[in-house]
Design a protein around this nucleic acid. Structure first.
Length: 980
RNA sequence: GCGGGGAUUGCCGAGCGGUCAAAGGCGCUGGACUUAGGAUCCAGUCCUUAGUGGUUCGGGAGUUCGAAUCUCCCUCCCCGCACCA
């Protein structure tokens, strides 16, 4: 109990002690050493706007295990870290703090209180966030501290942020390269836009943007011909329904504009006019009008050429698309309901002097055949749901969605749809739109998927940005090269390769400049206020780590970092003399930078979270193949999923966050590292449960105690190991061997499960079986294996291992100790088999003891006759590659001298074999080795059953004690038992 | 919708053609230690049985000497979908 409370405290002190030493001795600083193979790891750098939590430490912790493992394998390892601060988030935080956003202040008070205890200081820090750069610099500083407190073996001398002016030069160079290779194109592009700020908006800028998902929707604006070159433009998502149009709806009280647009005359709502002005049109307003002005007018439907009237409807929203829709009562519940409402509504008919006769003649048109519906799905569904009027919006919404879905997936165009007859709706929809566009009787109208406001209060609409710059990921040659690179890469876990392939196939043009956020100015449009989108900051920056050290050390200025310098260092292009002259840098410094890059690159492994696959990881491959020669392409990615708690992803609003900064005091660093890396496979969401952490804690404590019990002794010294000790020794070896095989494939979980947990269990087991053995032997064997475990498990639990290494009398760092070769001998394999054999045997004994319910005085164990081993080995050979056929065993036995005399017994045995053919797959111990194993455990078994006598009988021997004829039942690996 | 992943014993979660009744954990049950224990340690935890038997791995069909693992169909669940890092 005392040990219990103290254990974590002891460990925590140890953790601090070693972190300090590592830092003081610069143990993890990457320095060129050409005598060693290099290994360059990167883990995606964090975004510096908030404290990191335990979910992040899953990713970084795995990275650290890999880095430490490689280091202990003799590689010269470089694992640097920087910070991402470009884009909008830093600005958004700063903006909210500046505008005294209460929630934001509250959130940041909590964040900062993780690091600062004094309330006044907390307020001070937050106040400083009114300057964006302070947000980034504060968190960058804190996060790196957190990382070091987690024991990560980082080279901290190569830190930078994506906001550094020197780094911006590197990004500028990247874009110059991409542009030179014609990978940047121009075009128009719809985006979400705030009419107030006159600027693009992202999720951060939209009120409740994290809850309402606002997207750009493309409507087809169909031009209903009013008169020559003058149109009523009705917007729809379902252009195929044009064949069912019976009339046009307009809001009688709504305000509309007659506009001149691209040499045509349109009537659309006032709001729509404003929106279209941002959508790449030439517009002048001719006049304003109210909806009622055009009621009862007749328009011509494109394609069908039928003439239909314009009627009033209150469900029309003038602030949605064009504020005009056409009516398809057969297939649209709103339209049907509005039509019925109007036909009954004498008052309205009179008010607008509508042609009542004509109105009442209007009937729904059926033009889509849908499974499980009659001719008029809208009518059917409205009746079924009991829709009363067009005010019944809840039910109408539901009906609309149901029909949309049903018709979309199972609808077929009917014979009144001309060329489109028989087409599935899925297909007809796009075809009809294309035809309409072709004959210039439709135009795309962009609208937001939901009404939304900017944080500034302005309405958000869709705007078309002209001459926008794009990265052309769809470029056939670029794409092909990226695939080529991907095909050569190692992806861990391999199953994510598919996701990359899908991403590559889906990637097309991607806008690469923004008007908002921090970042590098776009070099092609200097002075116009275009910023390079921030994902481009995280695709080839790994290369920058190799040279940033020299930039900082030599105090190189941004304006010295000319493209030709990067060309020379990173691409080996150009002439050093000229570069030196133009950049005013000494040749020596330039050479050093080049040497550093050429030594470390490529980035041997990049480890990140899974959700980066479809963006920055894919782009990283694209940008590498575009810019670098093949020898510098990325060789490998490894990935892990996130951490959840109480079933949900960690987020401030869910209140389930554990900040990394609190890990050392709340848990322990080694404990957390161990748990995070081993409790789940990397591709699954890891649910953090304190009860499970507790398990890891108990095991860690046990390991610590076992290890401490042998720090005062030395290894094996002329002590002959008895059977149980040999078993322990070789099973630990076997476990460590498979642990090393796992981590070699970057499988940290199996590495820990096999190398740590399985070994502790093996020791537990040993202590049970070895109670009767001399203390000196037990200590010797334990010391022997602890030494190995300490070295091999150091990558996972480095602090504890450093401490034990020291307490065992070593003066070097275990973090730098080479992992020994573990060689599994035939003897080890035999012990493993014997151990398994004994576990099974003891289980059998235990089962019988339980059934008999009396304590046995004697335990007779019968080992099978030798000929049975011969038989099984023979059968194994026969069935190695083919199906099991008993006849073959029988005939082969007949030809075998040793077996032919037992044919009767073999017939019985064969029946058993057929029942359980797996027996042919397992390894079998000789009768002698079965006996050896049992003898090695005799004392233990005897002690376990009140000193019962253990008697081993060989079925072959004559005159054995066998009152119940058990001996003949013994099979290889399955001795028979008799308890008395 | 498109694309991907998944469904395992009370729960979480490994396994992905053969010692698989299926790792490990949690929970539960019993015991030890204790004044006590929601601490820790040990044992047990599908059903049956002097053991080598039966029924299980979302549902259904198939391939195989042998399937949780392979194939096909069905049902349900999760994730990603571009100007957001």
């Amino acid at each position: 109990m005392i040990i219990m409370t103290n254990f974590l405290e002891v460990i925590r002190e140890i953790e601090k002690k070693w972190q300090k030493k590592w830092q003081e001795d610069n143990v993890f600083v990457g320095v060129i050493d050409k005598s060693k193979p290099k290994w360059f790891l990167t883990v995606s750098y964090p975004y510096a706007t908030a404290p990191l939590h335990i979910g992040h430490s899953r990713t970084y912790g795995l990275g650290d295990i890999f880095a430490r493992y490689k280091r202990q394998q003799g590689y010269n390892v470089l694992w640097p870290m920087g910070f991402h601060i470009t884009g909008t988030p830093v600005l958004a935080v700063s903006w909210k703090i500046r505008n005294n956003d209460e929630d934001e202040w509250k959130k940041y008070r909590e964040y900062i209180s993780i690091y600062e205890k004094d309330t006044k200081r907390i307020e001070e820090v937050i106040s400083s966030f009114t300057k964006p750069e302070n947000v980034a610099s504060y968190f960058a500083k804190k996060i790196i501290q957190d990382f070091l407190k987690m024991g990560y073996s980082l080279d901290t001398t190569r830190q930078f942020t994506t906001g550094d002016s020197e780094y911006n030069k590197f990004i500028e160079w990247q874009y110059i390269k991409l542009n030179n290779k014609n990978l940047i194109t121009k075009g128009n592009h719809p985006i979400l836009w705030c009419i107030n700020d006159k600027n693009a908006v992202g999720e951060d800028d939209i009120q409740a943007g994290d809850e309402i998902k606002v997207e750009v929707t493309e409507f087809v604006g169909i031009k209903f011909i009013l008169e020559n070159n003058s149109f009523l433009v009705a917007a729809t998502l379902r252009p195929e329904t044009i064949f069912g149009a019976t009339n046009v709806w307009i809001h009688p009280d709504g305000f509309y504009n007659e506009i001149s647009i691209d040499d045509e005359t349109w009537i659309i709502s006032k709001e729509a006019t404003m929106k279209l002005m941002e959508q790449d049109h030439k517009i002048t307003i001719i006049r304003e009008l109210k909806g009622e002005e055009i009621l009862d007018k007749i328009v011509e439907v494109p394609i069908t050429k039928s003439k239909i009237p314009v009627y009033p409807a209150n469900f029309i929203d003038t602030d949605h698309a064009t504020g005009i829709v056409y009516s398809v009562p057969g297939h649209a519940p709103y339209d049907y309901t509005a039509l019925v409402d109007l036909q009954k509504d004498e008052k309205t008919i009179e008010k607008y002097a509508l042609n009542s006769e004509k109105l009442k003649q209007i009937n729904p048109i059926s033009m889509i055949k849908v499974k499980d519906y009659g001719d008029f799905p809208a009518v059917e569904l409205c009746q079924k749901l009991g829709v009363k009027s067009q005010e019944d919006t809840g039910k109408l919404e539901k009906a609309t969605q149901t029909i949309y879905k049903d018709e979309y997936y199972s609808g077929i165009m009917k014979d009144n749809t001309g060329d489109f007859e028989g087409l599935k709706i899925e297909e007809a929809k796009d075809r009809i739109a294309d035809v309409l566009f072709d004959i210039n009787l439709a135009a795309p109208i962009y609208e937001t998927s939901a009404k939304a406001s900017c944080r500034c209060g302005g309405q958000i609409i869709v705007a078309i940005i002209q001459n926008q710059y794009f990265l052309n990921y769809g470029d056939a040659e670029w794409n092909k090269k990226a695939f080529e690179a991907l095909n050569k890469m190692t992806i861990i876990p391999e199953k994510y390769r598919q996701s990359f392939e899908n991403t590559f196939n889906w990637l097309d043009k991607r806008p690469c400049v923004r008007r908002r956020g921090l970042g590098t100015e776009f070099p092609l449009t200097k002075g116009e206020g275009w910023i390079i989108e921030s994902l481009s900051d995280s695709v080839i920056y790994m290369a920058y780590y190799t040279i940033v050290k020299h930039i900082k050390k030599n105090n190189i200025k941004a304006n010295q970092l000319k493209p030709m310098l990067f060309d020379y260092i990173l691409l080996d292009e150009g002439d050093i003399k000229e570069v030196s002259k133009k950049t005013e840098l000494s040749e020596h410094i330039i050479k050093q930078m080049k040497e550093e890059f050429e030594y470390w690159y490529p980035n041997d492994l990049r480890h990140t979270a899974i959700h980066h696959i479809s963006n920055h990881l894919s782009f990283a491959i694209f940008h590498h193949v575009a810019i670098f020669p093949e020898k510098y392409w990325l060789p490998a990615f490894s990935l892990n999923d996130m951490v959840s708690r109480f079933g949900e992803a960690m987020s401030k609003s869910k209140g389930n966050v554990i900040p990394i900064a609190l890990v050392p005091e709340k848990y322990s660093v080694d404990l957390t590292r161990l748990h995070l890396a081993s409790v789940a496979t990397p591709e699954t969401v890891l649910e953090w449960k304190d009860t499970e952490v507790n398990y890891a804690k108990q095991r860690l404590r046990k390991f610590w105690e076992y290890a401490l019990s042998v720090t005062d002794t030395t290894g094996k010294k002329n002590i002959a190991y008895s059977f149980p000790s040999k078993i322990l020794h070789s099973s630990v070896k076997t476990n460590l061997k498979s642990a090393l095989e796992a981590i070699e494939k970057f499988n940290a979980r199996d590495y820990i499960l096999d190398g740590f947990y399985a070994n502790i269990r093996a020791i537990d087991e040993y202590y049970k079986i070895a109670e009767h053995l001399p203390k000196t032997e037990k200590k010797a064997v334990l010391r022997d294996i602890i030494e190995k475990i300490v070295i091999i498990m150091a990558p996972a639990i480095p602090h504890i291992c450093e401490e034990l290494n020291e307490r065992m009398g070593y003066t070097d760092y275990v973090s730098l100790k080479l992992i020994p070769d573990i060689v599994i001998t035939n003897e080890d394999l035999l012990y493993a088999l014997q151990s398994k054999y004994m576990t099974d045997l003891m289980e059998d004994i235990e089962q019988i003891v339980k059934l008999v319910k009396t304590k046995p005085k004697k335990i007779h164990i019968y080992i099978n006759a030798e000929w049975k081993n011969v038989l099984y080995e023979l059968a194994k050979k026969i069935f190695e590659e083919e199906a099991v056929q008993i006849g073959k065993v029988m005939s082969a036995s007949k030809d075998n001298n040793e077996l032919s005399k037992y044919m009767k017994e073999i017939a019985n045995e064969a029946k058993l074999m057929l029942k359980d053919p797996t027996i042919f797959r397992i390894k079998i111990l000789s009768t002698k080795n079965q006996k050896n194993a049992i003898e090695g455990y005799t004392e233990f078994i005897s002690d376990k059953y009140n000193k019962a006598k253990i008697l081993i009988h060989m079925a072959d021997e004559k005159e054995i004690y066998d009152p119940q004829k058990k001996a003949q039942k013994a099979r290889p690996m399955k001795p028979a038992l008799l308890l008395e």
